[in-house]
Amino acid sequence: MGYNFKETMNKPERFAPGHRMCAGCGATITARNVLRGLHEGDKAVISCATGCLNVSSFMYPYVAWEDSYIHSAFENASSTMSGVEGAYKALKKKGKLKEDYKFITFGGDGGTYDIGIQSLSGAMERGTNMTYVCYDNGAYMNTGTQRSSATPMYADTTTTPVGPKCKGKAQYRKDLAAILAAHDIPYVAQTTLLQGFKDMHVKAEKAIYTDGPAFLNVMSPCPTGWKYKADEIMEICKLGVETNYWPLFEVIDGKWILNYEPKKRLPIEEFLRTQGRFKHLFKPENEHLIEEFQKEVDRRWDDLLFKCSR
């Protein structure tokens, strides 16, 4: 079955309005659109790591999810879902449940790259039949923009504040998609918010309907943490892709597949310039930092091309 945008948009909404995320939040856009990968009528259980999405989507007694939902703690969204999936298998085996369910877990980069990586790695290695979606906004936004291992190099965060002795975060970001691919799970993909959302819808559907663990890494900008005007989100995501900062790829059964190659790769500064967190890089004395950044982007892109050429 081919992809049909209007059909996808016509599905019932599974993430209700009235949640308390910030105006213009990228994480909610991600959550909504990933859920559009579910086939109409199919049942799902959603879980969430502690973070913006969780606290804003279920504030007693208001729950935004239209499917059954569980939140337990910060670092254990994956293991919690392992238990739910285990219950599903047990109840099926014992003939107590006839309906089919899909299992989808959301976590920010804090709950995924950092504190939750152990339980995520465990659940993936065990072959838990679930889709884990990281809404990567590159810092601990729920607590006020502290750096994470997903934060890009030189970003100004509240724990790497720019000053005479600090040019922002010193390290480049962890390549989580590659770490997940190294688990040899059947499906890993990276996507972001792009016009029409076909890339996300298609990857979400593939992930959700993969037999076994699947992982989606979704760059989901945060207007407050990245310091941009809320309505610029789609442009920023596009630049992330066009500069090769956030490449679109899939790893299916170990095979790396590049989904998009910019016709003319844009310089990284076009992406950096859109966000206040990189403002200091545009001072004359910091030009070399942008060069450094560009080198790292290029190195990673070459590495990705190599992986995809095999």
Binding site: N76, T80, G86, A87, A90
Partner: peptide, 27 residues
């Protein structure tokens, strides 16, 4: 005929038990 899940830590064993119990299973 129990689902026996060999998790990677005690934090996860309790978390999975919570998930399973909330899901309607005896865990």
């Amino acid at each position: 005929d129990t689902e026996f899940i060999t998790v990677e830590s005690e934090h996860s064993s309790m978390s999975a038990a919570i998930g399973a119990s909330a899901a309607g299973a005896r865990a």
